[in-house]
């Protein structure tokens, strides 16, 4: 198939229903969360920020940068891949495992877990299990950019960028560089997003195999 015949269906016609946060709103929310974290923790003592891969990892870095600007202290930054702790393994395969990095003593630390969208709570359940296998934190708090509701487990966020009531038929997603070309919180019709994602993934794979062929 040539690019020409592909064009009418390349996903460009697909767009989010609503953009609930733009890049500036996202930046302000993260700055507020950084203040709230420091206030609740009474400073940066024993604080560590751990992002859940992949977007949480980038968000965690943004929070650590802001905490440094406010408090003048660079708190430890970690990342957690929860693929091996999911409860839906076998139904949904995570073919690419990312590395987990917790470059601080987990025992006794004050961990802030960071994720993009809080939905069913299952990701956070998995993240807590993963974290506990590395040590025993003094406390664990949760920071998310968006809480979209529909929890299936008794989990809530301590720091929330924005509460976004949503229908299950919708997809709420955080677009974030370097994964996307812009930063925003978007609400999509789930089918539109599935289609857009499929087209994007296909383009990425074509790009990848092109790279490999050239090597």
């Amino acid at each position: 198939m040539t690019e020409q015949t592909n064009r009418p269906d390349d996903g460009r016609g697909l767009a989010p229903k609503t953009v609930v946060m733009d890049e500036e709103a996202l930046g302000r929310a993260l700055t507020r969360i950084a203040h709230e974290i420091l206030e609740a923790n009474d400073g940066a003592d024993r604080l560590a920020v751990v992002g859940i891969v992949t977007r949480g990892k980038v968000l965690a870095k943004m929070l650590v940068d802001r905490i440094e600007q406010i408090e003048g202290v660079r708190v430890p930054l970690g990342s957690l891949d929860i693929s091996l702790y999911r409860d839906d393994y076998g139904h949904r395969l995570s073919p690419v495992l990312h590395s987990t990095s917790l470059p601080f003593d987990v025992d006794g630390s004050h961990v802030v877990l960071v994720d993009d969208v809080l939905f069913t709570g299952r990701t956070i359940r998995a993240a807590l299990d993963a974290l506990m296998d590395y040590g025993r934190p003094q406390c664990v708090r949760l920071a998310v950019v968006v809480d979209r509701g529909h929890r299936e487990l008794p989990i809530r966020a301590d720091y929330v960028g924005k509460n976004v009531p949503s229908a299950r038929s919708e997809t709420v997603r955080l677009a974030l560089p370097p994964f996307d070309d812009h930063a925003a919180v978007e609400i999509w019709d789930a089918r539109d997003w599935a289609r857009a994602k499929e087209l994007r993934d296909r383009a990425a794979r074509a790009d990848e195999s092109g790279k490999e062929a050239r090597q």
């Binding site: 091996l84 590395s99 987990t100 296998d133």
Partner: peptide
């Protein structure tokens, strides 16, 4: 894929609690 995945498991094998709930 196998070698990349193994690199992640090598990390797991070097920590105190080596057991995963995956399977």
């Amino acid at each position: 894929q196998i070698l990349d995945t193994a690199a992640t498991f090598e990390q797991v094998n070097s920590r105190t609690i080596k057991k995963l709930p995956t399977l």
